[in-house]
Design a protein around this nucleic acid. Structure first.
Length: 503
DNA sequence: AACCTCGGACCGTCAATCTG
DNA sequence: AGATTGACGGTCCGAGGTTA
């Protein structure tokens, strides 16, 4: 079994490298619950995409009638599949369930491992240690608050909490999978992609007919204990609304599917209702996925002229599905999402797993605001200051600033979404804000591609020793800010003064 | 025309840091 | 302790290429 493990090629593409640094991506499909370890004794923590399935006996035996000929190639990672026989959907789902369930624990496990190897720092942070401590086997709860509140998705991992919940899939049924030709081809060519569904193991690259949505929903529902007690009646505790959904999905055209899904998404049947992070999502839009009029949310309900000239804010889902994530396409909160329904990828439409944020990363002294009462510049327009850090410019005490539209923005960090009113602009505190300065293109770490912006009026105060926790060079290198300084903003005020005078 | 790929702009989160 | 900062980790726009 172990000799079947083959290293998954990493595409040289930059973005994929970045994505491949997301160790937890593979975790939802990680088939290594503790109770299965006896069947996977050689399992390594340095798992790769596309390998886990080989340690999963019940899944390695997955058979697929539609993959007998042409699609066999597209299922390269399923090379161990027998060429004939019935596709055992229940086993398939069972395996997927276990893989999903494992995500909770293995994700945290990966934090300790991957995070350590990637950054070389923070491995010993308390949270990571804690995550690791919880990462063995049957841990039934997200091992970190982040996982609990954000990453843990019931559709992906709830099975872990319901180890005795029966799967409703038809045991032994050989449901015909309908392969979506374009994607079959596409995914076939992407097997080296770390996000390739075939490398998820639980996500065979064939698309399923949407009629199987009702079965697929039980991915989140199956037993995680390897039991074969399969029932055809027990609904998912988290998605028991969806049995109503499955029969309602006839073979429709793509547009019809999309339309239908929009209805789904905006209805109480949306899986978004059950996601833990939607409940406290601050924006009112999250409850209405799929509404085309909400693709962009209005920054201002017409109360400010500047809003008319500003580009509407892009709205993102909390967690894109693996398919949309891989394709860098817009997803929605429904599972399956509209796009996956459209392309027949409902089988693999599962939430991607979010990486646990690193902790213990030393951050340099923050640049400090300069009082700058005399630097008022009325030339600052709403557009020029509408940077993500614009909130910095909002005086904490400015009342009325967060009035009408802000009621929808309970998240304090979303204050930068607010329009920049003229009154605020003219305030003395705002005066030092003019066009932000781009300080080039950072390619030194992380995702790169971010143009560091220094807003005038802020004094970069990185001490010379600061290296962004070894991740970044000091982003403000214009004049050696902080050279010999102790990070005091006064030492770099000159740079900002000049910045403030920039046109 | 539809779809795919992917660079990078944009977004939201939240731990580190600052401030009163 | 609460506010703020800003890096991180993510989403997905949109342009260019490919395919049917």
């Amino acid at each position: 079994m172990s000799q079947q493990l083959s290293p998954v090629k990493q595409e040289p593409h930059v973005k994929q490298e970045h994505l491949s640094q997301m160790p937890s991506v593979s975790q939802p499909y990680h088939p290594q619950p503790a109770f299965y370890q006896h069947q996977a004794p050689t399992y390594s923590s340095n798992h790769q995409y596309g390998q886990q399935q080989h340690n999963q006996p019940s899944y390695a035996g997955l058979q697929h009638p539609a993959s007998s000929s042409s699609s066999a190639a597209s299922m390269g990672s399923f090379s161990g599949l027998p060429p004939t026989g019935n596709y055992n959907l229940s086993r398939h789902l069972l395996a997927m369930n276990m893989q999903h369930g494992q995500s909770v624990s293995s994700a945290s496990n990966n934090v300790a491992n991957g995070g350590n190897s990637a950054g070389g720092s923070g491995a010993a942070t308390p949270v990571m240690a804690n995550a690791h401590a919880n990462a063995n086997g049957l841990s039934s709860a997200p091992s970190s608050p982040t996982l609990n509140n954000l990453q843990y998705h019931p559709s992906a991992g709830n099975s872990h909490f319901n180890s005795n919940v029966n799967s409703t899939s038809n045991s032994g049924s050989s449901t015909p999978y309908v392969q979506h030709p374009p994607y079959a081809q596409s995914y076939q060519n992407q097997q080296s992609h770390p996000y390739h569904p075939s490398n998820y193991n639980s996500s065979p690259p064939y698309g399923s007919h949407p009629q199987q949505a009702g079965q697929q929903q039980h991915h989140s529902n199956g037993s995680g204990n390897g039991s074969s007690q399969l029932s055809s009646t027990a609904p998912s505790p988290m998605r028991q609304h969806q049995p109503q959904y499955a029969p309602l999905v006839p073979p429709l055209s793509d547009s019809q599917y999309a339309q239908y899904h929009q209805l789904l998404g905006s209805s109480a049947f949306s899986s978004a209702q059950s996601t833990p992070y939607h409940s406290n999502h601050s924006t009112p839009y999250s409850s209405m996925p799929g509404s085309p009029t909400l693709e962009y949310q209005q920054m201002n309900n017409g109360s400010n002229e500047s809003a008319l000239t500003q580009k509407p804010k892009r709205r993102q889902v909390k967690n894109a599905c693996v398919n949309c994530q891989k394709a860098c396409k817009k997803c929605d909160e429904g599972r399956p999402c509209t796009r996956c329904i459209k392309y027949g990828l409902t089988d693999t439409c599962v939430d991607s797993t979010r990486k646990v944020r690193k902790k213990g990363v030393k951050r340099g002294p923050y640049k400090r605001r300069i009082p700058a009462p005399h630097m008022a510049s009325t030339s600052a327009t709403a557009s020029t200051v509408s940077t993500p850090t614009m909130r910095n410019a909002v005086p904490p005490g400015v009342s009325g600033y967060m009035s009408e539209p802000v009621t929808a923005l309970s998240s304090p960090t979303q204050s930068h979404m607010l329009p920049f009113t003229s009154s605020a602009t003219s305030s003395a505190t705002m005066g030092h804000l003019s066009a932000p300065l781009d300080f080039g293109y950072d390619t030194s770490g992380g995702q790169g591609g971010y143009a560091y912006r220094m807003e005038s009026g802020y004094a970069p105060s990185y001490p010379p020793s600061y290296s962004g926790s070894s991740l970044y060079a000091p982003p403000y290198m214009s004049n050696g800010s902080g050279n010999g300084s102790n990070g005091n903003s006064s030492s770099t005020g000159g740079a900002n003064s000049s910045a403030a005078n920039m046109p």
